[in-house]
Amino acid sequence: MNDGYSYTVIRVQPNEQTHIGVSIYPDALAEVKYFPAKEHSHAFITITHGVADVTIGTTNTAEITDEHVTFARHLLNAAAAFLADCERLHAEQQAAA
């Protein structure tokens, strides 16, 4: 079933900082890919859904900082929690069916 959707919101208000939000609610057409670091490029992950593309990566420098490692750990923990919640909800739906 392809019932996912994606959208971007740009909020601009006087005397306030501009806010840009990208939301992806994936379906079977969404893709997540990892591109490892190579000699002249940095590591990054892409999430693609329709015409929405989100890239998450290290800065394009030779130095990987503590901040990069900390961010990657936070990303991993959030993705693991998201996976566990999806698996739990899916199992509950299958049991109810």
Rank of each mutant, 00 (worst) to 15 (best):
Pro36Leu: 01
Ala95Val: 02
Glu31Cys: 01
Gly57Ile: 05
Ala84Ser: 12
Gln17Leu: 11
Ala37Leu: 02
His42Gln: 15
Thr70His: 03
Leu29Ser: 15
Ala37Trp: 02
Thr58Cys: 10
Thr8Asn: 08
Cys86His: 05
Ser23Asp: 00
Gln17Ala: 15
Ala30Val: 02
Leu89Ile: 09
Tyr25His: 10
Asn60Glu: 10
Glu63Gln: 13
Val51Gln: 14
Asp27Ile: 12
Asn2Asp: 13
Thr70Ala: 12
Asn77Lys: 13
Asp27Met: 13
Phe44Cys: 13
Glu87Arg: 05
Gln93His: 05
Val51Arg: 09
Ala52Leu: 03
Gln94Glu: 15
Val51Met: 06
Ser41Met: 00
Val32Lys: 00
Ala95Ile: 08
Ala97Ser: 15
Gln17Phe: 04
Asn60Phe: 04
Ala95Pro: 03
Ala97Pro: 01
Phe35Asn: 11
His49Gly: 03
Val9Cys: 03
Cys86Trp: 07
Asn2Gly: 05
Tyr7His: 09
Asp27Trp: 08
Gln13Ser: 12
Arg11Pro: 00
His68Gln: 06
Pro36Ile: 00
Gly21His: 07
Glu67Pro: 02
Asn2Glu: 10
Met1Tyr: 06
Gly21Lys: 15
His49Pro: 04
Leu76Val: 04
Ile47Leu: 12
His40Asp: 15
Thr8Asp: 12
His42Asp: 07
Asp85Ser: 09
Asn77Val: 03
Glu67Ala: 14
Ala30Leu: 07
His40Tyr: 13
Val9Gln: 11
Thr8Val: 15
Thr61Met: 00
Ala97Trp: 02
Gly21Leu: 05
Thr55Val: 11
Thr59Arg: 12
Ala52Cys: 13
His90Thr: 07
Asp66Leu: 06
Phe82Lys: 10
Arg88Lys: 12
Ala30Thr: 15
Phe35Thr: 09
